[in-house]
Design a binder for these strands. Structure first.
Length: 562
RNA sequence: UGGGGAAUAGUGUAACGGCAGCACGAGUGACUCUGAAUCACUUAGUCUAGGUUCAAAUCCUAGUUCCCCAACCA
């Protein structure tokens, strides 16, 4: 039961009120109803967390139901992916896996029942005529000339539609409601249309398929759903949802609408995501830059981070756009707790410790996770020749730069204090190619020296002889605009694609403990960010994705100085 | 010239006639073997105009702005 002091969103408030008044006999039963015509994205995750979360919280159930009423768009591939994603997010529909297509026979019988009751008729208008007859937002429509056919004729025609006698688009079954209704959904909506297409589950059994509106509420009703939660754009459909259920005289669930999730620098419509995939602007549905659940998974997001995000953003009816930084905050919060630290030089710069013995290799003890003592320690080999991060050396360091520069001393994490004595520069390119240092043997393990000397900076490193080579893929927002759909006249959201959303670093060096990392493993590369092993990774060639960078206050300082 | 919704710090989200709170962001400082994390502090809000009331984000009236709807998509 809800905690006494936690505030509840408006949907949970409705559920609690219904429990209090015993409206549904104390029962809570929700459903998540995806159409299998695309991959799930983080907006669906919000809905999944809401529907499954409410069921969990109030000792109810949540069904998984595929809304598969349009055979031309739906595929088994999507069904499999959707199921995998929901499970990965941590939710379980047990044996309650349903399909709207399971109800095709029942829906057909209900359609016949409505024809008999004079509530439905077969209409011979083609799609264009249907639109003309419907009227506009401000003008009422006019009745179809076929509206007053006899019950017998309607029964006969509908039967023949089902038998496949008519080509696609030539006839529909329509509900007889009101062509003058202010809500266009009530102007004799189409219940059934003719589609001679193979359905992924029912095969060629049907050539007429029910519309969403004639399917969804009845499916909810059949399954005994109490709270049918959907997004705002279905608010206009609620009167029709209610109308069908009343006309049929069946159990009546309550539809409740909430605002869908929008994220800055992200597009969230399945249509647009499909476009990116089909035009190969991303590598696929699971491209780590995609807001799809599989994309986030490959990127290195944890289910817990996504769940917490969905909790933190709340549920309301106001259209809103969540700052992507909140998602990243939730991500870092979880990864910080659970990721082991390792060292990696992404843009390696050679560092030689001139006074360190040539053949000596020391095994330095390193903490796996300073925020989680149970994560233990590991050893990292240290030797005379190392690689550090190129960013950690400046030939001419600006003020407040705490890292390495000529004559400067820094700590090598878990290693020694080193002082830069010299550096080699390629005069042609201006590139620094090598740094020379001396070390202080009294600072082993990174300990401060007895003389109380302090350094401001600690930098990471890998041993040249022991490091493993790796490819690292750095990701940035897929779009340059916080609202990618904000385009000038005649523009396209794809005009806002960020050309630098992927940067591949192929000559990175990582500490040897990473040689055995498995696909999906997550790490913090110290001082840089969170990374995970990409499915492309092999023992020959390690590949990491940067999930998210660490917060970087030095970058802010430096930017301000510009 | 229709109908349905929604308006609270920069972004989200609470407060259900009785002290406008929380989170993220941003800023400042402390601490630090990660310029991370952590900790402390600061910043900033009720769409507008009237009205009811001892008291209004909340109730009433009128406006303004934004979103959705004219697929045989969902």
């Amino acid at each position: 039961m809800p905690k006494p002091n936690s505030s509840t969103d408006f949907i949970r408030a409705i559920v609690e009120e219904d429990m209090r008044t015993n409206k549904w006999g104390g029962k809570v039963h929700t459903r998540f109803p995806p159409e299998p015509n695309g991959y799930l994205h983080i907006g669906h995750a919000k809905s999944i967390c809401l529907n499954f979360g409410i069921a969990q919280q109030y000792d109810g159930l949540c069904n998984l139901r595929f809304d598969d009423t349009n055979p031309v768009k739906e595929e088994q591939e999507y069904i499999d992916a959707i199921k995998e994603d929901i499970r990965w997010l941590g939710f379980d529909w047990e044996d309650r896996e349903y399909y709207a297509s399971d109800y095709f026979h029942q829906l057909y019988d209900w359609a016949v029942q409505m024809i008999r009751a004079g509530q439905a008729y077969v209409c011979d208008l083609d799609p264009e005529q249907t639109r003309e007859y419907r009227g506009t937002l401000t003008e009422s429509g006019k009745n179809s000339p076929y509206r007053d056919r006899s019950v017998e004729e309607n029964l006969n025609l509908f039967e023949r539609m089902k038998a496949g006698e008519f080509p696609d688009g030539t006839r529909t079954l329509r509900a007889k409601i009101d062509m003058a209704a202010a809500n266009l959904n009530l102007r004799d909506p189409v219940m059934y249309r003719i589609i001679h297409a193979n359905h992924h589950r029912t095969g060629d059994e049907w050539c007429i398929y029910p519309m969403y509106d004639f399917t969804h509420g009845q499916s909810d009703s059949i399954e005994g759903i109490t709270h049918s939660i959907c997004t705002l754009e279905f608010e206009n459909h609620r009167p029709l949802y209610d109308w069908y259920i009343e006309a049929l005289g069946i159990y009546h669930p309550q539809q409740i609408e909430f605002a869908r999730l929008n994220l800055t620098y992200t597009v969230m419509s399945k249509r647009r995501l499909l476009e990116l995939v089909e035009e190969k602007l991303v590598s696929g549905w699971d491209d780590p830059r995609m807001p799809t659940v599989c994309g986030l998974r490959r990127r290195g997001y944890s289910p817990a981070a996504i769940r917490n995000f969905c909790k933190v953003i709340g549920v309301a009816k106001m259209d809103s756009t969540i700052d992507i930084q909140l998602l990243e905050h939730c991500l870092r919060e979880d990864l910080n707790k659970h990721s082991n630290r390792v060292m990696a030089a992404m843009r390696p710069l050679k560092l030689v410790i001139d006074n360190y013995p040539e053949d000596l290799v020391e095994e330095m003890e390193a903490t796996n996770n300073p925020n989680d003592p149970s994560a233990g320690t590991r050893t990292v080999p240290f030797s005379r020749e190392l690689y550090i991060e190129r960013d950690d050396f400046r030939e001419d360091p600006p003020k407040k730069f705490f890292r390495l520069g000529p004559g400067r001393e820094v700590r090598l994490r878990y290693g020694y204090f080193v002082t830069c004595t010299d550096f080699i520069k390629d005069e042609k390119t201006g590139e620094i190619t090598e740094i020379h240092c001396t070390y202080d043997p009294q600072t082993r393990g990174g300990e401060s020296p007895p003389d109380g000397r302090k350094v401001k900076g600690t930098i990471h490193w890998v041993s040249a002889a022991h490091a493993k080579r790796a490819e690292v893929r750095l990701y940035d927002h897929l779009f340059t605009k916080d609202n990618p759909n904000d385009v000038p006249e005649e523009g396209d959201f794809k005009d806002n694609l960020n050309p630098n959303s992927l940067e591949i670093l192929s000559d990175c060096l990582v500490e040897p403990s990473l040689a055995t990392a498995a696909v999906g493993d997550r790490f913090q590369f110290e001082r840089q960010g969170y990374f995970c092993v990409d499915p492309n990774s092999t023992s020959k060639k390690l590949v990491f994705n940067r999930t998210v960078s660490l917060r970087d206050s030095w970058a802010k300082i430096e930017k301000k100085g510009e």
